[in-house]
Simulated scan of single mutants.
Amino acid sequence: MTTLMMGSLYDALRQAGADEEKAREAATDVADHGNRLHAIERRLVEITGRLKFHRLLFGFLIGLGVTTLGLVVRLSIVV
């Protein structure tokens, strides 16, 4: 797997006096962290969409249940 590195962070660390290997590792770690956060964010967007759908479905089913209960009560009064 290709590892990405934040070039600006690497350059800043090198200019601050960090050795090449440590600057490369730090920049790679920060880039990997950003990639993980992006994946989590995408997953949360998916979950939010599913929750909206389930909330809509639940509301429909509650309405259907109330309507059915109303019809049962109405028919039991008539009979």
Rank of each mutant, 00 (worst) to 15 (best):
F58L: 02
V73E: 10
L51V: 05
T2P: 04
A12Q: 07
M6E: 04
E21S: 12
R74N: 15
H54T: 12
V66L: 04
L61D: 07
L37H: 11
L9P: 00
R42F: 03
R14W: 03
S8M: 12
D19S: 14
D29N: 09
A27Y: 07
M5Y: 09
L13V: 14
A12N: 14
I62D: 04
G17R: 05
T67Y: 10
A18D: 01
A23T: 11
G7Y: 07
T68L: 02
L64A: 04
V72F: 00
G17L: 02
I62S: 11
E46N: 00
R50Q: 09
F60E: 04
E20Q: 13
A16L: 05
H38T: 03
R43F: 00
M5W: 00
A18P: 03
D11N: 09
G7L: 00
E25Q: 12
R50N: 13
G7V: 00
S76I: 15
G63I: 15
G70R: 15
R14G: 11
M6P: 15
L51H: 04
T67F: 10
L57Q: 11
L9G: 12
V45T: 03
R43T: 08
V79I: 11
A18R: 02
G70F: 07
S76D: 12
D19R: 02
R43S: 09
D32L: 04
E25P: 03
G34F: 01
E21L: 04
A18M: 01
S76V: 07
A31L: 06
Q15E: 13
V73T: 09
T3R: 10
L4G: 11
L37N: 05
I62M: 14
I62R: 09
A39Q: 06
H33G: 09
L13P: 01
G7D: 14
G63P: 02
R14S: 14
R43W: 01
A18I: 12
N35W: 02
V79Q: 15
V78W: 12
N35H: 14
A27V: 00
G65K: 11
H38I: 01
A12D: 06
M6F: 04
G70M: 09
V72S: 09
V79C: 13
A27P: 01
R50A: 06
G17V: 11
A26Q: 01
L56T: 04
L56A: 08
R36D: 09
G34S: 00
D11R: 14
A26C: 15
G7N: 01
A23V: 02
K52M: 13
I40Q: 03
A27T: 00
V45Y: 01
A18H: 10
